[in-house]
């Protein structure tokens, strides 16, 4: 059976979701191509007379757009942004992002649950960015989320899987795709998240702040694929203590 990521009635072969922030529009096509990405995130902002280029012109056809609600401080603002994003005419997917805290950019789970419930009822494919808390994740499932997107570390920090144990709990207990979002700074961390059983990994800053963006996009693609294969293979066991030889223990020369 083909291994695909199912979201909102669609199937994706790529398990690497690409952000489009903080780098040149002219790099987006290469980033998508090298990342092998089939989903890309966007933000909604006031139109600005200084910038006339349309980001949609730079995104290859066939890539699913995942607008976020960044800038929202509560459920009501997130709902408003999500509706505007849909009016922009690019589908029903939305990544809910609600933050009250501007230093650590941590999500407000309670408001995120409220917004998820409203938007799911309006037919959105709701992908909430969240702090990895099992109770909140269960509430998001009941509110109609299509996935949950727990943070690995604060947005843009590149610090890796700081919340590792709690993400593992979500993977083990939540019956929706768990997509690790925010804080993943290196391909090895993306690989580890996939080995743990994450359904996908999302990254933006790790690429935007890399020396060579397309090359890093490719490294992430390979890491996510390797981690997925490792998860599907079933990782080897870890010994509590001691060692176990890889060779047979008979037929030594001194026997």
């Amino acid at each position: 059976m083909e291994d695909t990521l199912k979201l909102g009635g669609r199937e994706f072969h790529s398990r690497f979701i690409l952000g489009s922030g903080k780098y040149s529009l002219s790099l987006i096509e290469a980033a998508v191509q090298y990342a092998g990405a089939e989903i890309i995130t966007l933000a909604v902002r006031r139109a600005n007379t200084q910038e006339h280029e349309n980001i949609l012109d730079y995104i290859p056809k066939g890539v699913t757009l995942l607008p976020n609600t960044s800038g929202a401080r509560n459920a009501q603002e997130a709902v408003r942004i999500a509706r505007l994003a849909r009016e922009l005419g690019c589908g029903d997917f939305v990544k809910i992002e609600i933050m009250r805290d501007t230093k650590y950019l941590l999500p407000d789970n309670a408001e995120t649950i409220k917004a998820t419930e409203i938007l799911a009822k309006e037919g959105f494919v709701v992908m909430p960015y969240m702090y990895p808390d099992l109770n909140a994740a269960r509430d998001l499932v009941n509110a109609g989320a299509a996935s949950v997107m727990p943070l690995a570390a604060p947005i843009g920090s590149n610090k890796g899987l700081a919340t590792r144990e709690f993400i593992q709990i979500l993977i083990d207990e939540i019956d929706l795709p768990v997509i690790v979002d925010a804080g993943i700074g290196r391909p090895s961390q993306a690989c580890e998240a996939m080995e743990m059983g994450a359904a996908a990994v999302m990254s933006n800053t790790a690429l935007a702040t890399a020396g060579d963006l397309p090359a890093m996009a490719e490294a992430f693609r390979k890491a996510v694929e390797a981690g997925r294969s490792a998860y599907l293979s079933g990782l080897g066991r870890v010994l509590e203590r001691g060692g176990a030889p890889s060779d047979t223990l008979t037929g030594f020369l001194h026997d």
Binding site: G19, S20, G21, K22, Y23, L25, I28, T41, L42, A43, V44, R45, R46, A47, N54, I55, L56, L65, P67, N68, S70, R80, R83, L84, A85, E87, L88, G89, C90, I155, G156, A182, M202, N204, T205
Partner: peptide, 30 residues
């Protein structure tokens, strides 16, 4: 005034004195 004007109605919706209008678009984001 916090209500979306559907694209099809942009040509027929008249803006009135005191209205608060927001015009938004997509930009890069994570």
């Amino acid at each position: 005034n916090e209500e979306i004007i559907p694209k099809a109605e942009l040509g027929s919706t008249v803006i009135r004195d005191g209205d608060v209008v927001e015009i938004v678009r997509f930009v890069g984001g994570g």
